[in-house]
């Protein structure tokens, strides 16, 4: 079965798995894992440059920007103002018009602050950013972010880095029914089946980081996530059978 190209803003992707670059033990493992994941989009964070001591290696020396599309995030921002400022700084680095907007409510849950997320979305859309916005799985919040002009809405399956998978499939289903922009599950993925479920539900993609980076073998987990993403997508396109309460025999009924 032939799949369509995934369009996000002006970008076209054939891979539907988006991966982060945080928490890897070494740049070499990260590079291998990115490759094994088949991802075309990788997320990065914006932080102060190290100005003391020896200059360290730069992350982007290990990511081929001709091969990967860079998606800077506003992780670690707890207000609209901070997130907008971070998005502008990221854009100034000159390699991406996209931003993964993340405005967090508190450090313990890392859940999004819905009010400031909406405000920041409105501002960044007006400023010409391609906004992919991290949100909770609340269908109303998701709709409001779409209405504010987000290019993609990215509900969390479960809290960031928790590995709990998709806790409320029904909410994701309602979001998918309600929204017309691409919906990408972002956060909470623990293992391959979580990716598969998101794709089977009809999400256009999945974004994850910790599930790969902190696996015992990140490179083989990256491959597992890739296969799960493709598998879930194919199952979605193929049209699953409805769930039934009672059995239905696969063999013909006995007739002799």
């Amino acid at each position: 079965m032939k799949d369509t190209i995934l369009k996000i803003g002006k970008h076209n992707f054939s891979s539907r798995l988006f991966v982060g670059t945080g928490k890897y033990q070494t740049f070499a493992i990260m590079e291998e894992a990115l490759k094994a994941s088949g991802a075309e989009v990788v997320t990065v964070a914006v932080r102060r440059a190290n100005i003391g001591g020896k200059p360290g290696e730069s992350l982007l020396d290990h990511i081929d920007t001709n091969k990967y599309t860079i998606l800077p995030n506003t992780a670690g921002c707890y207000s609209c103002d901070e997130a907008v400022r971070t998005a502008f700084l990221a854009r100034e680095m000159g390699i991406s018009d996209m931003v993964k907007l993340e405005v967090l409510g508190d450090e313990k849950t890392l859940l999004p602050d819905p009010i400031d997320t909406l405000k920041a979305t409105e501002i960044l859309v007006k400023e010409g950013f391609t906004v992919l916005v991290y949100t909770s799985d609340d269908p109303i919040a998701a709709r409001r972010l779409q209405d504010a002009g987000a290019t993609s809405v990215m509900p969390a399956g479960s809290p960031i880095g928790s590995g709990q998978g998709i806790l409320n499939q029904n909410n994701i289903r309602i979001i998918l029914e309600t929204l017309s922009v691409p919906v990408i599950v972002d956060a909470g993925v623990g293992t391959a089946s979580d990716v598969c479920i998101a794709m089977e539900l009809g999400c256009v993609g999945v974004l994850l980081n910790t599930g790969i980076a902190e696996a015992k073998d990140p490179v083989s987990m990256a491959k597992a996530m890739k296969l799960a993403c493709e598998s879930g997508r194919l199952a979605y396109l193929s049209g699953r059978i409805p769930k039934k309460l009672y059995a239905k025999a696969s063999s013909p009924l006995k007739d002799f």
């Binding site: 982060g20 670059t21 945080g22 928490k23 890897y24 990260m30 997320t43 990065v44 964070a45 914006v46 932080r47 102060r48 440059a49 100005i51 730069s58 992350l59 982007l60 860079i70 800077p72 995030n73 992780a75 700084l89 990221a90 680095m93 960031i160 880095g161 956060a187 974004l207 994850l208 980081n209 910790t210 980076a213």
Partner: peptide, 10 residues
């Protein structure tokens, strides 16, 4: 001055 760069993140 504030000088920032890209680092690993999700």
């Amino acid at each position: 001055l504030e000088i920032v760069t890209f680092v690993g993140g999700g």
